[in-house]
Design a protein around this nucleic acid. Structure first.
Lengths: 141, 141
DNA sequence: TTGCGTGCAAAGGTTTTGCATGGCA
DNA sequence: TGCCATGCAAAACCTTTGCACGCAA
């Protein structure tokens, strides 16, 4: 855990702006590196990771761990969303590995139910629904 | 994804027995390696990982990812749990590691909803809800 | 005998760290 | 000027893979 940054640097600024321009999109640390390499304003890999960690701590972006052997995903959390404390759920297909992002209000039922009836505070960041996606199910038959 | 093993080997047998002797305990692949190294019946690291993957696929053990930068944890799943299959959900506490079994019909809403609205066939056996349990939440305050 | 399972070593990929340099306040 | 942030390279780490050998059926 790093302390909150004390200096305002160009790297941090353009990183934050980049995430703000991508609401609802999931990207990996490597994606971010590649992007800035392409735009001609490369940022060191280590800096990317350090800033990403910071942004997560500050609640500006969210980190998702889908699978132990896939890179972590990061997503900008809009100000509205941050206030609502909402976030999306994930479905992972066991067959093709596809990751599906669900931003579904009905699923908040699940969170409420677990908290009210089972005294369990669900963490949507960590929770992944495993199953079979539509395409793979159709391909089976 | 590996195919189901066709031969019964000593390595697989003692690995399964080892997990059966540890209900409710979560250990890492490395822990398993170390254990067998100490007992004088070492098993190759690669074999450990290969068998672990198999056992997860067969539903005999479960794999948990608590943190992206910690090794994955494995835990034996008792036969009772396996038999109940569709009707049992699991919650894992991120703090104390406790595994909570939920037998709740209301949660079938989740399965139905994902299937009807999102074309996703949930696999309750593989899916684990991560969050904070009652005790840990109370201990926080 | 056949071919799967094993073990070793090496590779693979993600993330962290050490250290010198650069930049903010 | 004093520190913090950055960037490079290398390390650390967990996990997978290639390949030859051993063993189950």
């Amino acid at each position: 855990m790093n302390a909150r940054p004390k200096y305002k640097t160009k790297q941090k600024e353009i990183l934050t702006e980049y995430f703000e321009s991508l609401p609802g999109v999931h990207i990996t640390a490597n994606d971010v590196c590649e992007y800035f390499k392409k735009t001609g304003t490369p940022i060191g890999q280590a800096t990317i990771y350090r800033r990403l960690e910071n942004l997560v701590e500050e609640g500006i972006i969210r980190k998702y761990i889908i699978d132990s052997n896939s890179p972590a995903c990061f997503e900008y959390v809009g100000k509205e969303i941050r206030v609502e404390n909402g976030s999306c759920f994930h479905c992972k297909c066991e067959k093709c590995g596809k990751l599906i992002h669900l931003r579904c209000d009905e699923l908040m039922f699940l969170k409420d139910h677990l908290e009210a009836e089972h005294d369990f505070r669900l963490d949507p960041l960590r929770t992944v629904f495993y199953g079979i996606c539509d395409e793979c199910r159709n391909a089976e038959n």
